[in-house]
Design a protein around this nucleic acid. Structure first.
Lengths: 204, 204, 204, 204
DNA sequence: AATGAATGAGATTTCATTCAT
DNA sequence: GATGAATGAAATCTCATTCAT
């Protein structure tokens, strides 16, 4: 087997990479991407800062891989939901539940995404975030619009505002959610859906 | 040349200070505190980086002053609401409306607060953030609990979860809100309250 | 005078820049570009490594400016010679003499150019070196060709080989030439021309 | 596991060593010694960076061996020429021809020698370069001086300047020469000698 | 009030080299 | 003989901050 160059970007030895990326994601989520030094990541991984560069090209490439991996899995889940062809209310419920499951599985990545993506999209390298945002918006908006058309969701709301409301409502949870706590993701999803769909006021 | 240097802590020329702090807040909000260099702030203000130090002790002191000013005004508003002694639903409506007014007035500061406060509270200097968070939580929680007790809000909800839901729901709006847009803060507050209180589903 | 940004690339304060560039060129020439650390340059300039970045964007940008400045001046001289419309022998003599004068004035830059340009041209940023090389080749080749046509230069030589011979013959001198030595540039030019034109063998 | 590690200094498996050194020389010549990473050499050789250390002690020892091998062969050729006891013109012609043959055989090594030796001589390890330079200078100078004494070369030339002229004139050719091109080394030597001995001007 | 120049600490990155397997 | 992972030293660069003018 001749000349291969760069072991890094190749998904050659995925085990150690994954470990290190999980570590990095944890630190990024906790301290913020900019405030996280490569040394801190290395400390957490029990190695020297320079050693990380055997596995990754740069701090930024770690961030990219963390976000890409997360979004790939997220869309796997979402696509399954969207292709199921269920009614708008069931679709919305499934999307919310799926979102909380992703928060459960990728808490760190979600927190990073929430905090950093607005800054990152401007960079060419992170253009895939914008693409994901577009698909995201389309999925939610069309579900809401179908729901309004089918009189399942209230027609007197501004749809874009409602979209933002639902979207944010779900994802900010990543900032306080701790996996393994007293609530399972499905339980939290159920409560959130109850609030979003029926409100917190007592029905007249 | 008598006495000391550095007139900054002196409240002299408060107009220029305010201008500069607004500029700084804008840049902090747009790029993130860590990613914002003193040079960028100075560029926006039409001066050189070093010149800012005539007005402020440090980058951190700018951040502190921005957040303190915002929280002081926020609590002026909240305290008025809380001391009015209205019923839980009216109090909640007033708090949400007041919050959107603050977002309107201090959009940059709110965005900074949302993004950075979690990291900052750990520092002695920003302990006032923790204090504010405690008062905040108390205000909302007690309003919700009063509402549940008075059967104005649903009893079947996890109150802490509901608190986070309402809190996040309101404040994340700062990440997309643009003052002077098509919706006034009061209008947005009304729509949000409608969703939060009554849900987005059509009533059976 | 409002917002100006970046004092560096702007030719704002040319005095200190020039000093620092001269220092840098000296070190680059002596130790080679790659082997020269920014710290060494700073040491020679009596400042700290980081301080250089107030004046220049990067080590590479120093190199670029050194080479550009040199080539600009070189072409000022060459163009004057080429536009004089003299015969091929006089043109060649003038070009050689001008070259030794440039070596005298920009010894460091010439040495750097000689040693590094082959590696550098591959980079986008140093594409201007390729452009200069093309003009260079054209100037010398056409002079030689005119000379052959006018029977001033021998016709039995391979013109491209002759071009390389003459070109290298002149410029490698930069690797050993020391300004202020016993020979003036004009004197060296005269000797070189004597060898190049008439050879070192005794005439039959 | 008895005795030591590292069999490299042992002359075992000299074929692979030679191959690897040729590869290394090629890369050193193309990119410069400092700019060449051990990884690049390994890439070209189809192995990983660390694997090179089975064969060699260090990057520097590769360089040393490349230059030593080249100079050993060079001096074999030169000594034969110098001991032949021919007249100064024939000696000079033979030295130049031999030089072009060496460029043909060791193009990479010659290019490295040209570019790096000035920096290297300062190091103890490369003191042999200085020794070679002294012998080199002596060989050429004495040949030129004999030529002047025997009225074969012009007496009106500065001998040291002429020495540098001839030396540079020959060796820089390594920077553009490509083996297997249209000119054989002997052909190029003949043309160079024609220029050096008789000049490029038409004889009056 | 502001500029221009510098400092100094620390960040990211590079890379020759080592070594257990 | 070669790989994969790591080390550790050093290099480039960034940036908040200082200070004489």
């Amino acid at each position: 087997m001749p000349t291969k160059k760069k072991p890094q970007v190749t998904a050659a030895a995925p085990a150690r990479r994954r470990e290190l990326l999980d570590t990095a994601a944890e630190v990024f989520a906790e301290q913020g991407y900019n405030a996280t030094t490569v040394r801190k990541i290395a400390d957490h991984a029990g190695m020297l800062a320079g050693s990380l560069y055997y596995h990754f090209d740069s701090k930024e490439s770690m961030l990219e891989e963390i976000l890409r991996t997360f979004l790939d899995e997220l869309w796997d889940g979402y696509d399954t939901v969207l292709e199921a062809g269920t009614g708008p209310r069931e679709t919305l419920e499934a999307l919310v539940t799926e979102s909380f499951r992703e928060i459960d599985r990728h808490r760190a990545a979600v927190a990073i995404y929430q905090k950093e993506s607005k800054q990152l999209v401007a960079q060419e390298r992170f253009a895939f975030l914008a693409e994901s945002q577009r698909r995201f918006e389309k999925a939610w908006l069309s579900t809401l619009e179908r729901g309004v058309a089918e009189r399942v969701f209230r027609a007197d709301l501004d749809v874009r505002l409602t979209y933002r409301f639902v979207r944010d409502t779900v994802w900010v949870a990543a900032s306080w959610y701790r996996p393994g706590g007293q609530h399972s993701p499905e339980e939290i999803a159920r409560q959130y859906l109850s609030m979003v769909l029926d409100g917190i006021a007592v029905r007249a």
